[in-house]
Computed example of a mutant assay.
Amino acid sequence: MRSTDLEAPVSLIDVASYLPGEPVDTEYFTQYSRSDRMAKNVMFRSPKGRHHAGRDETAVDMAERAIAPLVERHGTDLVSDIDVLITHTQLPDNPVLGAGPEIARRLGLRPKYVFDVHNGGCAAFVHMMFTARMILRTTEARTAMVVAVQNSAGAVFTQPDIRKLAQAPVPGDGCGVGLLVKNDSAPILDIECRTYPEFAGDMDFSTNGERKYWEPGEGQACVSFTESKVTKVFARGNRLVPEVALAVCDRIGVKGRDIDTFVTNQPNRLFLRNWHDALELPAERHPDTFDRCGNLFAAGIPVTLDVTNRAGGLRNGSVVLMSAFAHAGDFAAAAAVRWGAAHA
């Protein structure tokens, strides 16, 4: 029987995360660094630490380890009955395949809906919540799991030519997951997703030469920006994250300064400061995992939620606002939830 209710409440009932290996100190990179004026740019000021996935640790390995606490807290029955599985992987282990089916196989799941998404970038966790909520509201599905894997720091940014660059120490690896259920126990209050096609293509992924990344030859592939593009991306990020966040606040009838907890992606310290200032929030209401984990890209929001929740920093019944922008600004998203996730 098909059950559809476009206004049905959908709740984020739990989050969990995984950080691979031992923390990697910034000194690992400074021994290789070269004089680079880009290193002085605020976009590339290094965190104190970060984690790197092992060479043979796959995205599915990381997802399985992040999901383990959800299985412990909710039991194998709930998790094995997941109807919707949505994943985002920063660096797919196999460029042809998404991680979803292999995660399902590992965990013994048989979800009816499996999607591997990519365009959400650093805002992918909110993007996946939006997609999951839409599926839960328009089908008979009742449970969903969303998985954000950031695994490019150890694989890409430690390459011999790349680890010398200003941006190399900034990313870290990690995985964050969320469990959604069609009920009103911890409801998603509102979600805003916006695509900005005019900014697509402003982020480069190249080998610093003529070689395509899949072709044999010299050159190591990495994301890169010209100095002029860094300036543009910084201005966009300063604007987009508060913009979508305040749009959600307006619709749920809450002022930005009255939000209990604001959780964003974690690209650098200056963005974090500017974002909570824009919402007129004190820093203590904007949890920060940057110095511990670096820039976790799409995993930044769920990992920060989990770290803060396990520390007792998220009160049940409070309003938690999430917001992020992706890539060079071609996507941004925000979501507000009435917090009710389980504590570890």
Rank of each mutant, 00 (worst) to 15 (best):
Ala68Glu: 15
Arg110Ser: 13
Ser80Leu: 01
Glu64Tyr: 02
Ile82Ala: 06
Arg106Asn: 13
Ala104Tyr: 00
Glu102Gln: 13
Tyr113Phe: 13
Ala66Phe: 09
Arg73Gly: 11
Ala66Val: 10
Arg106Cys: 09
Phe115Cys: 12
Val114Thr: 11
Val84Lys: 06
Arg110Thr: 09
Arg110Cys: 06
Val117Glu: 15
Leu91Lys: 04
Tyr113Val: 14
Leu97Arg: 07
Val79Glu: 06
His118Gln: 13
Ile86Met: 04
Pro101Thr: 12
Gly98Asn: 07
Thr89Ile: 11
Val96Met: 09
Gly98Met: 04
Thr87Ser: 15
Ile103Leu: 10
Pro92Leu: 11
Leu70Asn: 08
Gly108Val: 04
Leu85Asn: 12
Glu72Phe: 03
Ile82Trp: 01
Leu70Ser: 05
Leu109Thr: 05
Ser80Thr: 10
Asn94Arg: 05
Asn119Cys: 10
Val79Ala: 04
Asp116Gln: 11
His74Asn: 12
Thr89Pro: 00
Asp116Val: 12
Ala99Tyr: 00
Ile86Phe: 03
Asp93Ala: 12
Val114Ile: 15
Asp77Phe: 12
Ile103Gly: 10
Glu102Arg: 12
Val117Ile: 15
Asp83Leu: 04
Val71Cys: 05
Ile86Glu: 04
Pro69Leu: 08
Arg106Ala: 14
Ala68Gly: 10
Arg106Ile: 08
Phe115Thr: 12
Val117Ala: 14
Arg105Phe: 01
Asn94Cys: 10
Leu70Thr: 05
